[in-house]
């Protein structure tokens, strides 16, 4: 794979992250094949992306001609087989280890051993996802951040099998698309999700012990320079999402007390207070 740049990338899974990744690749000029096992999802992803691009055209950030050719560069396919001739496949399906492992197992036999298989995951082990592959050395993790077009960071994850050359090539390739990749080892939560844990968990403890209220914690941390306090941030990303990230890092470190989730997280999730999306979370939204 030395000196190779990839020419025909593909995306599996057309949810929020998949769409962001498709947008990045198409904007960079690639012809992109995309697959999702739900036909409705595929079609709505195309509509959603086209709407986004036309809005950019209205603002004068894209020409009509550019948008038309971007539309042409997106090719939806209706089976995994349709991706067999691609050379860099990025999987972005929901965070379900069995689902991902199964897709990689299938891709392993559908594609040539030269094709790079990347998984977009924030909390699963890349080594574990590639464990059923005959060629796990072509598997790499790419943790993108949402929204992909606004957050340039990508955690490029080296699994137990990934050679350094592949990590470096993937990093240079992402840089050509305006990304700021960092190289991380395949450990629970990588860097961002792991180092951010105390920001959330300690806030629950401080409030739980009655040392401060949620509003105060948010105000104080904003005053110190954080863009948002932990509680308003959780309401934005979803308390359930944050709880499951807490839990997966906790589990990944074999229940190290540093990562222990707080009982209130579960209580909020179970009572349906998930944040902005449910109208109620740490705060109430009209």
């Amino acid at each position: 794979m030395t000196g190779q740049t990839w020419k025909s990338p593909a995306v599996i899974g057309t949810g929020t992250m998949g769409r962001g990744i498709m947008d990045m690749l198409i904007t960079a000029g690639y012809q992109v094949k995309a697959f999702d096992n739900c036909k409705k999802n595929r079609i709505s992803a195309r509509e959603w992306l086209e709407e986004r691009w036309w809005k950019l055209a209205e603002k004068g950030k894209k020409t009509l001609f550019e948008v038309e050719s971007m539309q042409e560069r997106l090719m939806l396919v209706d089976s995994l087989q349709g991706l067999s001739d691609c050379d860099f496949i990025i999987e972005a399906v929901p965070e379900d280890l069995l689902l991902k492992r199964n897709i990689f197992h299938q891709l392993d036999s559908l594609t040539s051993a030269e094709t790079v298989l990347a998984t977009n995951t924030s909390s699963l082990s890349v080594t574990s996802i590639s464990s059923k592959c005959k060629h796990p050395e072509r598997v790499i993790g790419l943790h993108f951040f949402n929204p992909v077009w606004r957050l340039p960071l990508v955690e490029v994850v080296e699994s137990a099998h990934t050679p350094l050359e592949l990590v470096q090539q993937a990093m240079s390739w992402l840089q050509t698309m305006g990304k700021e990749p960092i190289h991380v080892l395949d450990t629970p939560g990588f860097i961002v999700n792991r180092v951010a844990r105390p920001f959330h968990l300690e806030a629950y403890r401080i409030v739980g012990e009655g040392l401060a209220d949620k509003n105060q914690v948010d105000r104080i941390l904003r005053s110190a320079g954080f863009p948002m306090g932990p509680f308003e941030l959780q309401d934005l990303i979803g308390i359930d999402i944050n709880y499951s990230a807490s839990h997966s890092v906790y589990e990944g470190f074999h229940y190290d007390p540093r990562f222990r989730p707080h009982p209130e997280q579960r209580a909020l999730v179970e009572s349906g207070k998930l944040g902005r999306k449910s109208g109620k979370g740490h705060y109430i939204y009209e």
């Binding site: 957050l151 960071l153 700021e180 960092i182 860097i191 961002v192």
Partner: peptide, 11 residues
């Protein structure tokens, strides 16, 4: 870089 670019922390 990760904490600045990924979560917009000031540093």
């Amino acid at each position: 870089l990760a904490m600045q670019k990924g979560l917009n922390h000031p540093q």
